[in-house]
Amino acid sequence: MDKYRLVVNPYDIERWVNDMANQGWHLKKFTWIRFTFERGEPGSYIYRHDELERFGTSYEDEYLEFLNSSGIEQVDRSGHFVFFRKSANDGPFELYSDKKNKISKLSQKISVLLSLILLNLVLAVIGLSGIFSAQAIDWIKLSMNITNILVVVLFSIPLLKLMHVRHKLKKDLDLYTD
Rank of each mutant, 00 (worst) to 15 (best):
D2F: 10
K3Q: 12
V7A: 10
V8P: 00
V8T: 15
N9T: 13
P10K: 09
Y11V: 05
Y11I: 06
D12Y: 09
D12W: 11
I13M: 12
I13A: 06
E14W: 04
W16Q: 09
V17L: 05
V17M: 03
N18M: 06
N18V: 06
M20V: 03
Q23E: 15
Q23H: 03
W25M: 07
H26S: 03
L27Q: 00
K28P: 01
K28D: 14
E38M: 01
E38K: 02
G43Y: 02
G43F: 02
S44Q: 05
I46Q: 00
Y47K: 01
Y47H: 03
R48F: 01
H49S: 09
H49G: 01
E51P: 00
E53Y: 08
R54T: 13
F55C: 01
G56K: 01
T57P: 00
S58M: 05
Y59E: 11
E62D: 11
L64I: 04
L67W: 07
N68R: 15
S69H: 07
S69I: 02
S70R: 05
S78Q: 08
F83Q: 06
S87D: 05
A88G: 02
D90W: 06
D90H: 12
F93P: 00
F93I: 14
F93T: 14
L95P: 01
Y96M: 11
D98S: 08
K99P: 00
K99W: 10
K99R: 12
L106F: 04
S107W: 13
K109Q: 10
K109D: 12
I110D: 08
L113K: 05
L116P: 00
N120T: 06
N120H: 15
V122Y: 07
V122G: 02
A124I: 09
I126N: 10
I126C: 10
L128Y: 04
L128T: 04
G130H: 08
G130W: 13
A136H: 14
I137H: 02
I137K: 03
K141V: 10
L142C: 06
T147K: 14
T147A: 15
I157A: 13
L159R: 09
L160H: 05
K161R: 10
L162G: 07
R166I: 08
H167I: 10
K168S: 10
L169Q: 04
K171S: 14
D172L: 12
D172W: 05
L173C: 02
D174Y: 08
D174Q: 08
L175G: 03
L175T: 06
Y176S: 04
